[in-house]
Amino acid sequence: MEVRTIKVFTTVDNINLHTQVVDMSMTYGQQFGPTYLDGADVTKIKPHNSHEGKTFYVLPNDDTLRVEAFEYYHTTDPSFLGRYMSALNHTKKWKYPQVNGLTSIKWADNNCYLATALLTLQQIELKFNPPALQDAYYRARAGEAANFCALILAYCNKTVGELGDVRETMSYLFQHANLDSCKRVLNVVCKTCGQQQTTLKGVEAVMYMGTLSYEQFKKGVQIPCTCGKQATKYLVQQESPFVMMSAPPAQYELKHGTFTCASEYTGNYQCGHYKHITSKETLYCIDGALLTKSSEYKGPITDVFYKENSYTTTIK
């Protein structure tokens, strides 16, 4: 009895394709271990004539594949690729409408935090270190965002349907971005203890939790000093293409032309909904596939993004 075979390709990165001759009487799992086709788990399936010449994702289970996976995804987590594939199996079914010149995501599976993050990423200057993220990001900007969303979920250790947080998501993504040249110098002034300067680099240099107003941050924000008295913390120097200011959701007025974009969060910790506000020729609110415009805006804002380049204080 002759062994019926077909020729397929296996890959971990969709760049390096490895030619395989597979036995049609055995499952993919018996031949390769966990195997995925377009995100779908085909591990328990036997090869079919229609699979001839198709590319299958496999887990990096030998040295060659491990090197290829690390170079593309910059992670050695053995569960990463499987999590990416199972997320992709959902995100490829989502709709990605162009809204006001940006790629958004039609609401499904509690994905409003991903839509808000995706919209924000198209408006701030950011370059990702893992080629996987950078490639998928370019495709997302062009309207094909399924891979990018699935990668975000995998890097953030999230599953489809789980509630997510924009600030946490951005923080994970910033860790995989090139923020080497970003720098922030802060000064804390206390009447009792004097003053202390701190220099922050990388992710810490672009994120701040405690106030939404970048102007206020430049002037000074009140913080408790270690001595128990009130101290003032203010920005001395900022070198970065953008800054992200966050605070627990509270009524906040966004003035046209003073910011790049913002995240609105309605609801409580267990259950809520994100919308995205962007400042173009007027203010726009993007909620999944829905767009509304207004000249002014007041609502429960939790993150505001500002364009920056270089700032030095005039406070002496």
Score class of each variant (00 low, 15 high):
E68N: 06
L173H: 04
S79Y: 09
G164L: 01
V8D: 03
A250F: 07
S246R: 05
M245Y: 00
S171P: 04
G257T: 04
I6K: 08
A40W: 13
D23Y: 09
L88A: 05
I301Y: 00
F9W: 11
L151T: 02
C149M: 11
R141N: 08
P97R: 09
L121N: 03
T258D: 13
L37W: 14
L173K: 02
T314V: 11
F80L: 06
I124V: 08
T198M: 14
T76L: 15
D303V: 03
Q197S: 12
Q222L: 12
T159R: 14
Q195E: 15
K92P: 05
N89E: 15
Y96G: 05
Q123Y: 05
C261L: 01
K44C: 11
R83P: 04
V160P: 07
T116C: 13
M245V: 00
P248E: 08
K183C: 08
Y138D: 14
N178S: 09
D287L: 00
E2V: 10
S263C: 12
L179Q: 02
H74W: 05
E162K: 05
C182Q: 00
E281C: 04
I6Q: 11
K293H: 13
T103S: 04
V304L: 04
E52Y: 12
V8S: 06
Y113F: 08
L88V: 06
F148Y: 02
D165Y: 04
R4L: 12
C190G: 00
Y172I: 14
L121V: 14
T5K: 12
K46G: 10
C285N: 08
Y252M: 13
P249N: 02
V185Q: 05
G272K: 00
L119I: 06
L254V: 02
N49F: 13
E144T: 07
D23L: 14
G220V: 01
T35D: 06
S104A: 10
L212W: 02
D77C: 12
F32E: 05
T192V: 11
C156I: 08
N16T: 09
I301T: 01
H276L: 09
G228W: 00
H90N: 08
T10A: 10
A145G: 11
Y72D: 06
W107P: 05
E52P: 07
Q98C: 11
G82M: 14
L119N: 02
A115Y: 03
F259E: 01
Y137A: 08
K255P: 07
F70L: 15
F128R: 03
G82Q: 15
Q251I: 14
L102H: 07
G143Q: 04
A69H: 10
S246V: 03
K219Q: 13
F56V: 09
I277S: 00
C156K: 03
Q230F: 15
D13S: 06
R66D: 08
A262T: 00
Q196W: 13
C227L: 00
I277A: 00
T103H: 06
I124Y: 03
S25M: 11
Q238W: 01
G299A: 08
G143R: 03
N61F: 15
T199N: 07
M244H: 04
K7I: 10
F80A: 03
S213Q: 03
K233A: 13
S246G: 01
K280V: 09
I223R: 04
T35V: 12
Y155P: 00
Q30F: 07
P78S: 09
F148A: 03
T169C: 09
K93W: 08
S171I: 12
I286D: 02
K106T: 14
L37M: 13
F128A: 01
Y208H: 12
C225D: 02
S181I: 06
G164M: 01
T266Q: 12
D23M: 12
L153C: 06
L126E: 02
T226H: 14
D303N: 04
T312E: 11
V160E: 02
D38S: 09
E264N: 02
T10E: 06
D13L: 04
D135W: 08
L186Q: 13
D109E: 11
F217L: 15
M26G: 11
P47N: 05
M85Q: 09
S295C: 08
D287V: 00
G202K: 04
H90Y: 13
G33D: 03
I223W: 09
E68I: 05
V8L: 10
I6W: 07
L118H: 03
G228R: 03
T292D: 09
P248V: 07
S213F: 00
N49H: 15
Q98G: 06
A262S: 01
S86N: 13
E281V: 03
F259M: 02
D38C: 10
S240R: 00
L151G: 02
K44Y: 11
G33K: 03
V243N: 00
F70W: 10
Y155H: 02
L186F: 14
D63R: 08
L186H: 08
I15E: 08
R141P: 04
E239D: 11
S310N: 12
W94L: 05
Y96H: 05
V160K: 03
K280D: 10
K233Y: 06
L133G: 04
G272C: 00
G202N: 05
C227M: 00
D109Q: 13
M85L: 12
T282C: 09
P47E: 04
K183P: 01
A231Y: 01
N100G: 14
